[in-house]
Computed example of a mutant assay.
Amino acid sequence: MTAPTPAASAQFLRESEIRRGSEMLFFAYSRLTKAVDQNLGERGMGRAHHRALYFIGRHPDISVSELLSILGVTKQSLGRVLTELEQRQLVETRVGDRDRRQRLLRLTDSGYDLDSELFNHARDIIARAYSAAGQQAVTGFWAVLEGLIPPAERERVHVWRENSVPPGQRR
């Protein structure tokens, strides 16, 4: 049995407390990505493929430029990932309706299946943690995560989330 998580100190802004939170973020992220990384590795893919699949799945017909902005990677890096995902028939590309130069991305049925499979690994871990912590703690956790996003980017994150395709649905 694990020890209960101690409450944050009243001096939670001290370096030791901030380091503790930073370390917990690191270990939690490592745990979340471990199962996904193993699954991706078996397919000869990595986290860049996973991030692209995830965001394309949540926003079918996302433009390459929008995806570049969200992922914060170079055009060359994303190009390599998209080429591989297209070759594996996980992502398909079409030209824009108004601008023929625009490339719009969406997952194929195989891409949706893989995205769901990868998400399920993390979902189960997160759901257990949410359940153990309770609604108030989850709300506080979300507030901390949002606070980590630079203020200038928060509105974009809110708009992005509001316009996302609900899980399990496809446009």
Rank of each mutant, 00 (worst) to 15 (best):
Q11E: 12
G57H: 05
Y54R: 15
V157N: 04
S131N: 12
L107C: 09
R80E: 12
V95R: 10
F12K: 14
M1T: 11
L145D: 04
Q89T: 09
Q89W: 10
E23S: 13
S16Q: 10
R94S: 11
I56N: 05
Y112K: 09
D99I: 08
G44Y: 05
P4V: 11
Q87M: 08
Q38K: 09
L67Y: 01
E42W: 08
A129C: 02
T139R: 11
L40T: 01
V81Q: 10
G134E: 01
A152Y: 11
I126P: 01
F27Q: 13
V138K: 03
S77W: 11
E153P: 03
K34C: 10
V73H: 03
R170N: 07
D99E: 03
M45N: 09
A10M: 06
L107A: 02
R51K: 08
G111K: 02
L114A: 00
V36E: 02
F12D: 14
N39I: 00
T93E: 03
N39M: 07
S116V: 06
I70W: 02
R128K: 06
H50N: 13
Q87G: 06
Y54H: 13
T93G: 01
R31H: 15
L145M: 14
G140Y: 04
D97R: 15
L71E: 00
G79S: 14
G111L: 00
D99W: 01
M24T: 13
I62S: 14
V157L: 09
D115E: 14
E66K: 06
